[in-house]
Design a protein around this nucleic acid. Structure first.
Length: 764
DNA sequence: CTGTTCCTGCCAAGCGTA
DNA sequence: TACGCTTGGCAGGAACAG
C-alpha cells in the first residue's frame, strides 16, 4: 500500500510562502473586487436556522453514552457465552467477524491509495497526503480536534514528511513497517505530538506500563507529587483520550501489559463524540481567574463529563498554578503546536499566568490559553509563519492604532491587552511558535458561559494596528486583535449579536487575544463594529445533512449567503472573511494571505489543495494555476507574443520585453504610451478548463516525479476515451483533448513569419 | 545581471440557473 | 435574458536562481 496517495510535488517550489508574504491588500487598487466576482458582501448569512448557541451537552446524555458503553462492554465481557438454563431453544447466537476490522482497515488503506473518498489533505513540508478524516481523527487526538473544525486542507509543520508518511501508514495499517532505526525517536515524538497512542507508547517500556494498570490517567492527573518526568510528558498526549478508546484489540505489543479494560468503563470518553456535535462552536477559550475555574470546569463538565480522576486532575491543575500544569501543559503544548499549523501566530495573551489551564479534554481551553512552554516543540510552524500574518495596510485608513483605551470594559482581559501588544510584536516578527491556535485547532464546544442568555457570546476584539516597524514596507500596517472584554455582550451593541443570531449564525466569544488567523474556515470577521472591535461570526451549517463542503461544488460565497440558491449552500473551507469598513478581505485559511477578490483567493487556494492540476503538455510538470502552466508552455513552444514597437523585436513574455524596453530604449513599458504589442497566442490553443481534478471518477494521480498516472478508482477504470490500467502512465494526450495542435504548428510554420519561432519540443 | 517563476488585482468569456 | 459563478489571461511588481 505504499502507493498511497502519492505526494503531489508542486512545481511551485517556492510556493505561497514566498517571503513577501503579505502584500496583498496593499497593492494597487485595493478598491475592491469587481462586483462580478463575488461581489459585495451583502447581508451576511441568512441561514434560516437559528443558532442553538450553546448546546450544553447534557450530562445525562454523556452518562447515557457511558452507560451504554458500559452496558455494551459488559455484555461483551460477561454475557458472552453465558447460558441461561432452560432457554436452550432461544439461544442467542452471536457471530464475530474477526477479520472485519483488519479488512476494513485494509480497504480504507486501498481507498487512500487510490485517493478514493479522501476528504482531507494534509500538507507536510512539500508533500501532500490525502486521507480520510475519520481515520485521522480516530487515530490521532490531534487530528480529532483539528479536523473537527479545519477545512479540507491541513498543514503540519512540526512533523517531517517522511515521518508523517510512516504515521499515516500506521494509521491505515496498524503497523509500523521497516522504519529506519534512526527515525524511530522522531516517529515517537511525532506520534506523541499527534496524539497517536501506539506511537507514543512506543517510548514506554513495558514494565512501566505494567506498573500502572488501569491507572495511566491517574498518573497524569495526580501528578503524584513527583515532578513529572520526561516520560510523563511523553505519555501525556495519548493519555488525552486513551482510556475511552478502543485500545484493546490492537494494543501494541510493547505496551500490552497495560490493563486498560478496567479503565475504559470508568473513564469518560474524552473526546470523541463531543466535538462532533458542535462543530459549529469554534472557540472555547475563557480567561478565568483561577477561582472561577471550578465553575468553568463545571460548565465544561457539562459539556464533557469528566468525572473521575481525569476530571479531578483537571480541576486540580486548573486551580493551582504550579506543577500540576505540567501535565496539561504538556499536552497542550503538543496540541497547540500542532494546532498551530492551521493558525500559526496565535497570540496567546493569557500566557503563562492567567490561565490555569482548563481541563485538557474537557475543553480545549487550556490549549487556547496557555502559552506553550518555552521548550515547546519545534513544531511551531516556523517557516510558515514568516509570511503568515496577513498584512492589512488598509487598516490605517480606518483604524487608528487602537489605543487600548477603547476597552472601556476590560475586565479580566485588561492584562491581555497589554500582552497582546507584546505578543503581536512577536507574532508579526516571527510568529512565535507559541502561537496557540486556538480556534481552529481546538474548538470544542464551550461557549456556554459567555452569554447564556442569548446563547451566544459576542466577541469584542480590540484592533491594534501596528505602524510597520518591522515590516519592510513603510506605511504598512498590520492588524492585531486583542481582547477588549470577554463575555460582555451588552457592550457590544445588542443589535449585533441578535442580528447575527437572526441570520442563523453563531457569534462566539474569544476570551483570549488571538489573531484573526486563528479563525476557522467560514468565519466572518466584522471589523469596526463598535469602536475598534471585531465581531466574529461563525456561520452555522445550513444543511448538516449535506455534510461538509465539497470542493468541487459551487462554493457559497460570503456575500451570497443571503440567497437561497442551491449552489450557495455549500460552504467553502478555504477562507474566512475580514470586513473592514465595509470592505471584505478574504483570508486564506491555510497561509493567511489576504485577498481583495474572492476569485483570487480561490485561484490561490489551489496551491494548497491541488484540487485541480494543470499539467504541461510538453513535460511532466504540473501547476496549480492555469496561468503558470500556460506561461510555462510558452517556453516549450517558443512563441514570442510580445513585440517591441520601437524596434520590432519580439519576446516571449512581458518581463523580458519590459526589460528590453527599459534597458535598450530607456523607456517605461508600463507608461501611458503603448510601447509594445501583444499578439494573440497561436501555439497554445488549449481548450478551456483543461485541468485535472482530484475528484474525477478515475483518478489521475501525480507521483513524486510529477508523472501523471491514472488510478482506477472505479470499476471500469475508464475515463473519457481512454482506459489505462491502474498504474499505467498516462500520456498528456490522454489528458488533453487534441485541439489540432499539428495544424497550429503548421500554420505557424507556414506563416514564415520571423515573429514567431516555434520550437516543437521533442517530447511533443 | 538576466531569465524565470510567482503573485494578485483586474478583466473578459463561458456556462449554469432562475 | 439576466445574473452570478468559474475559469483563465493579462499587467506589472517582486522574488528567486544561475
Amino acid at each position: 500500500m505504499e502507493a498511497a496517495a502519492p505526494p503531489l510535488e508542486a512545481c511551485v517550489s517556492r510556493g505561497p510562502s514566498a517571503p513577501e508574504g503579505c502584500r496583498s491588500l496593499s497593492g494597487r487598487g485595493a478598491e475592491g473586487c469587481r462586483a462580478r466576482s463575488g461581489g459585495a458582501p451583502g447581508p451576511q448569512g441568512r441561514a434560516a436556522r437559528r443558532s442553538a448557541p450553546c448546546r450544553p451537552r447534557s450530562g445525562s446524555g454523556a452518562r447515557a453514552r457511558r452507560a451504554a458503553a458500559a452496558a455494551g462492554a459488559g455484555a461483551r465481557g460477561r454475557g458472552a457465552g453465558r447460558r441461561v438454563p432452560g432457554m436452550e431453544g432461544e439461544k442467542l447466537i452471536s457471530a464475530t467477524d474477526t477479520q472485519y476490522s483488519s479488512s476494513l482497515l485494509q480497504s480504507l488503506n486501498e481507498q487512500r491509495g487510490h485517493g478514493l473518498f479522501c476528504d482531507v489533505t494534509v500538507i507536510v513540508e512539500d508533500r501532500k497526503f490525502r486521507a480520510h478524516r475519520n481515520i485521522l481523527s480516530a487515530s490521532s487526538t490531534y487530528f480529532h480536534q483539528l479536523l473537527s473544525v479545519a477545512g479540507q486542507v491541513v498543514e503540519l509543520s512540526f512533523v517531517r514528511a517522511d515521518i508523517f508518511a510512516e504515521i499515516l501508514n500506521y494509521m491505515y495499517s496498524s503497523k509500523i513497517i521497516s522504519v529506519r532505526a534512526d527515525l524511530i525517536d522522531e516517529l515517537i515524538k511525532s506520534g506523541q505530538q499527534l496524539g497517536v497512542k501506539f506511537l507514543a507508547d512506543l517510548s514506554v517500556a513495558p514494565s512501566d506500563g505494567r506498573s500502572v494498570p488501569g491507572e495511566v490517567k491517574d498518573g497524569a492527573s495526580g501528578t503524584s507529587g513527583s515532578a513529572p518526568t520526561q516520560k510523563d510528558a511523553e505519555t501525556q498526549v495519548p493519555a488525552i483520550r486513551q482510556e475511552g478508546r478502543e485500545v484493546t484489540g490492537w494494543m501494541p505489543v510493547i505496551t500490552e501489559s497495560f490493563s486498560l479494560h478496567g479503565i475504559a468503563y470508568e473513564t469518560p470518553k474524552i473526546t470523541v463524540t463531543d466535538s462532533d456535535d458542535d462543530d459549529d462552536v469554534i472557540f472555547c477559550s475563557e480567561i478565568v481567574p483561577p477561582k472561577e475555574c471550578t465553575k468553568d470546569s463545571s460548565a465544561a463538565i457539562q459539556n464533557q463529563p469528566c468525572p473521575n480522576a481525569s476530571g479531578a486532575s483537571d480541576q486540580k491543575s486548573c486551580g493551582s498554578g504550579g506543577s500540576p500544569l505540567l501535565t496539561s501543559t504538556t499536552s497542550t503544548q503538543k496540541l497547540t503546536s500542532s494546532a498551530n499549523q492551521l493558525n500559526p501566530n496565535q497570540t496567546l495573551s493569557s500566557a503563562e499566568s492567567l490561565v490555569p489551564v482548563a481541563p485538557q479534554h474537557s475543553t480545549t481551553e487550556l490549549i487556547l490559553l496557555n502559552r506553550p512552554p518555552v521548550n515547546a516543540p519545534p513544531s511551531v510552524s516556523s517557516s510558515h509563519q514568516t509570511h503568515v500574518p496577513p498584512t492589512i495596510d488598509l487598516v490605517e485608513e480606518s483604524q487608528k492604532p487602537s489605543d487600548k483605551g477603547s476597552s472601556t470594559e476590560r475586565g479580566t482581559a485588561a492584562v491581555d491587552v497589554e500582552e497582546v501588544v507584546e505578543d503581536s510584536d512577536d507574532v508579526i516578527s516571527s510568529s512565535s511558535p507559541s502561537s496557540v491556535s486556538n480556534s481552529s485547532s481546538v474548538q470544542q464546544p464551550s461557549v456556554p458561559k459567555v452569554a447564556p442568555s442569548e446563547g451566544s457570546g459576542v466577541q469584542k476584539k480590540q484592533v491594534v494596528t501596528f505602524p510597520q516597524e518591522q515590516s519592510s514596507k513603510p506605511g504598512e500596517f498590520k492588524i492585531k486583535i486583542s481582547d477588549v472584554l470577554s463575555g460582555n455582550n451588552k457592550e457590544f451593541g445588542p443589535g449585533i449579536a441578535s442580528k447575527h443570531a437572526g441570520e442563523g449564525q453563531k457569534i462566539i466569544t474569544l476570551d483570549t487575544a488571538t489573531e484573526i488567523e486563528g479563525l476557522s474556515t467560514g468565519c466572518k470577521v466584522y471589523a469596526n463594529i463598535g469602536e475598534d472591535t471585531y465581531d466574529i461570526v461563525i456561520p452555522i451549517k445550513d444543511d448538516p445533512e449535506e455534510g461538509e463542503a465539497k470542493p468541487n461544488e459551487a462554493p457559497r460565497t460570503s456575500d451570497g449567503d443571503s440567497t437561497s440558491r442551491k449552489r450557495m449552500k455549500v460552504k467553502h473551507d478555504d477562507h474566512y472573511e475580514l470586513i473592514v469598513d465595509g470592505r471584505v478581505y478574504y483570508i486564506c485559511i491555510v497561509c493567511k494571505r489576504s485577498y481583495v477578490c474572492l476569485t483570487s483567493l480561490r485561484r490561490h487556494f489551489n496551491v494548497h489543495s491541488w484540487e485541480k492540476k494543470y499539467p504541461c503538455r510538453y513535460c511532466d510538470k504540473v501547476f496549480p494555476l492555469a496561468e503558470y502552466r500556460t506561461k510555462h508552455e510558452i517556453h516549450h513552444t517558443g512563441e514570442r507574443r510580445y513585440q517591441c514597437l520601437t524596434c520590432g523585436k519580439s519576446f516571449i513574455n512581458y518581463q523580458i520585453m519590459a526589460s528590453h524596453i527599459r534597458s535598450v530604449h530607456s523607456q517605461d513599458p508600463s507608461g501611458d504610451n503603448k510601447l509594445y504589442r501583444l499578439h494573440p497566442c497561436k501555439s497554445l490553443q488549449i481548450r478551456q478548463y483543461a485541468y485535472i481534478s482530484d475528484r474525477s471518477s478515475s483518478l489521475p494521480v501525480i507521483n513524486e516525479n510529477r508523472i501523471v498516472y491514472r488510478v482506477d478508482a472505479a470499476k471500469d477504470g475508464t475515463e473519457g476515451t481512454t482506459s489505462n490500467s491502474p498504474g499505467k502512465q498516462m500520456s498528456w494526450d490522454d489528458i488533453f483533448v487534441p485541439q489540432g495542435n499539428d495544424a497550429i504548428f503548421k500554420q505557424n510554420q507556414s506563416e514564415g513569419s520571423t515573429e514567431f519561432e516555434f520550437v516543437i519540443p521533442e517530447s511533443y
